[in-house]
């Protein structure tokens, strides 16, 4: 790897560290989402379904996209605009929908969940 390449793209060591930390976060998020989903299955609670979806949109989806784009960036050339604009934009949109889903889960009355 030439000096110019290192300057242009992310160094591999940085990428690997970022990837491992992201995977830990993703695993923990999936654990919580999984238990929320199981709460829905076991108790027939619609609120838990929305909680699981909301948590998924807030945590799992942005993390997965971020890992995916960064991995893609290691293999092929990705425009810097993707990292600075599109990636954060998609992550924020996903987070907004997740927070709205969580709010909806809080606002529906427990009676409807039965």
């Amino acid at each position: 790897m030439s000096v110019s390449q290192v300057a242009d793209t992310q160094p591999v060591s940085d990428y690997l560290l970022l990837l491992s930390v992201s995977l830990i976060a993703l695993g923990l998020a999936l654990f919580i989402v999984f238990h929320a989903y199981r709460g829905y299955q076991r108790n027939n609670s619609v609120r838990m379904l929305y909680l699981a979806c909301g948590l998924g949109f807030i945590t799992v989806v942005p993390m997965t996209i971020s890992i995916g784009v960064n991995t893609l960036g290691q293999m092929i050339e990705v425009a810097p605009h993707v990292y600075t604009f599109y990636l954060p934009l998609v992550a924020r949109v996903s987070e907004i929908s997740g927070i709205c889903t969580l709010l909806y889960s809080l606002l529906i009355t427990p009676d409807e969940s039965n």
């Binding site: 238990h35 929320a36 199981r38 709460g39 829905y40 299955q41 076991r42 108790n43 609670s45 609120r47 838990m48 909680l51 889960s105 809080l106 427990p110 969940s113």
Partner: peptide
């Protein structure tokens, strides 16, 4: 009970 059940109980108690 299960973690999932306690989680449900907690969230529905909000």
């Amino acid at each position: 009970g299960d973690l999932a059940d306690r989680f449900t109980e907690m969230w529905e108690g909000l």
